[in-house]
Simulated scan of single mutants.
Amino acid sequence: MNARVRLLLLLLPLLATGCSAISALEDASEPLEVYELRTPQVQRAGTRRNVEVVVEEPVGSGALAVERIMIRPAPLQAQYLPGVRWADPVPVMLQTLLVRSLTEAGALGSVGRRPLGTNGDYAVLSELTDFQGESGEGVSGATIRVRLVFRIVRERNATVVATRAFSATEQSLSTDAVAIVEAFDRATTRVIADAVPWIVSHTR
Rank of each mutant, 00 (worst) to 15 (best):
residue 1 M to V: 05
residue 10 L to S: 07
residue 15 L to R: 02
residue 17 T to Y: 11
residue 17 T to W: 14
residue 18 G to K: 04
residue 19 C to R: 15
residue 19 C to V: 12
residue 20 S to F: 07
residue 22 I to S: 10
residue 22 I to K: 11
residue 23 S to L: 10
residue 26 E to Y: 15
residue 27 D to N: 13
residue 35 Y to T: 06
residue 38 R to K: 14
residue 42 V to D: 00
residue 44 R to S: 15
residue 49 R to P: 02
residue 55 V to G: 09
residue 56 E to Q: 08
residue 58 P to A: 04
residue 59 V to M: 06
residue 69 I to M: 07
residue 71 I to P: 03
residue 74 A to T: 08
residue 74 A to I: 04
residue 78 A to R: 12
residue 80 Y to L: 14
residue 85 R to C: 07
residue 85 R to P: 01
residue 87 A to H: 03
residue 91 P to D: 08
residue 95 Q to D: 11
residue 97 L to Y: 04
residue 100 R to L: 15
residue 105 A to K: 05
residue 107 A to H: 02
residue 109 G to H: 09
residue 110 S to T: 14
residue 112 G to P: 03
residue 113 R to W: 05
residue 113 R to K: 13
residue 116 L to W: 10
residue 116 L to R: 14
residue 118 T to D: 10
residue 119 N to I: 15
residue 120 G to H: 09
residue 122 Y to S: 03
residue 123 A to W: 07
residue 124 V to G: 02
residue 124 V to F: 01
residue 124 V to K: 02
residue 130 D to R: 15
residue 130 D to G: 14
residue 133 G to R: 05
residue 135 S to E: 11
residue 147 R to C: 07
residue 148 L to Q: 01
residue 148 L to N: 01
residue 149 V to I: 14
residue 152 I to M: 08
residue 154 R to Y: 05
residue 156 R to M: 13
residue 156 R to L: 13
residue 162 A to I: 11
residue 162 A to V: 10
residue 162 A to M: 11
residue 165 A to R: 01
residue 166 F to D: 02
residue 168 A to R: 02
residue 169 T to A: 12
residue 172 S to D: 03
residue 176 D to M: 09
residue 176 D to N: 14
residue 176 D to C: 03
residue 181 V to R: 04
residue 181 V to N: 00
residue 181 V to H: 04
residue 183 A to T: 07
residue 185 D to H: 07
residue 186 R to H: 02
residue 188 T to I: 12
residue 194 D to I: 11
residue 195 A to D: 05
residue 196 V to L: 06
residue 196 V to G: 06
residue 200 V to K: 00
residue 201 S to I: 02
